[in-house]
């Protein structure tokens, strides 16, 4: 029996029943930009970077179930332009100063912006006042770079069973909070073994004393663009 397929930018993509467009595309090594999707976690659909067009309608590919015969558009000028605008929004929403960030070169936000050729954040910056939490002996939290993808929230809640992180407030004031009366990571049961310690796509959750150990030129996305890298598996960041 031939397996069910849909097309992504004209390329035939096989899928299993129950897979989303994103899951099938990743299995077929076809790149769709994404920031809040992780194969080991339930799809969330919040960053909207993975938006594709199905039958002319915009939809998040990480939550849309694949169906036989769908014609999915992804790598088009229109969609990439819209994605670039979303990236620009994420850059002006927080404080993303790449030269001083330990995640630079390994950051999915940055690498996706390279991929989509974002030359400028374009919009006026919000320059929010956000804290840094250095309380934990092994990990540092720099909220300036948080893009509110909820990967750590979901990993901690759904996989680690800990609820170390959550989102508070709403709208542009939405922020990541930590499960302690003090609000400090040191006062939680967060551990380096948690999945939540390894899923941050940007430079918020950082392991201490390991920063800048890989020289510029040899970091993850120095070597290959994000679109060319093998698709991450569950449990890997």
């Amino acid at each position: 029996m031939s397996e069910a397929t849909f097309t992504l930018d004209g390329k035939t993509i096989p899928f299993r029943e129950g897979q989303t467009i994103m899951q099938a595309a990743m299995a077929a090594a076809a790149y769709i930009p994404r920031l809040c999707y992780h194969p080991g976690l339930k799809p969330h659909g919040s960053c909207k970077l993975c938006t594709v067009k199905v039958n002319g309608r915009h939809t998040a590919s990480c939550t849309y179930q694949a169906q036989p015969g769908l014609a999915v558009e992804s790598d088009t000028e229109e969609l990439n332009g819209e994605r670039r605008s979303l990236l620009q929004m994420l850059f002006v929403e927080g404080n993303h100063f790449c030269p001083s960030c330990e995640a630079s070169g390994n950051c999915q936000l940055q690498a996706t912006a390279y991929e989509l050729k974002m030359m400028t954040p374009h919009y006026d910056h919000f320059f929010p006042d956000r804290p840094v939490d250095a309380s934990h002996p092994e990990y540092l939290l720099d909220f300036n770079r948080c893009i509110l993808c909820s990967l750590c929230v979901r990993a901690s809640r759904d996989v680690d069973g800990k609820n170390v992180f959550a989102l508070a407030e709403r709208g542009i004031k939405t922020r990541l909070i930590v499960n302690a009366e003090s609000g400090l990571l040191a006062d939680t049961n967060f551990s380096a073994d948690d999945m939540a310690a390894h899923v941050c796509p940007v430079g918020v959750i950082l392991r201490k004393r390991t920063g800048f150990s890989v020289p510029i030129g040899q970091r993850t996305y120095d070597i290959n663009p994000i679109s060319a890298l093998p698709q991450p598996k569950a449990g890997e960041s």
């Binding site: 919040s46 960053c47 929004m89 994420l90 509110l148 989102l167 407030e169 709208g171 542009i172 939405t174």
Partner: peptide
């Protein structure tokens, strides 16, 4: 004011 903040375009786009 009423954006829930879940998705990028509304969370950042409405205040922009």
């Amino acid at each position: 004011h009423e954006s829930c903040g879940f998705c990028t375009p509304c969370r950042v786009g409405t205040p922009l």
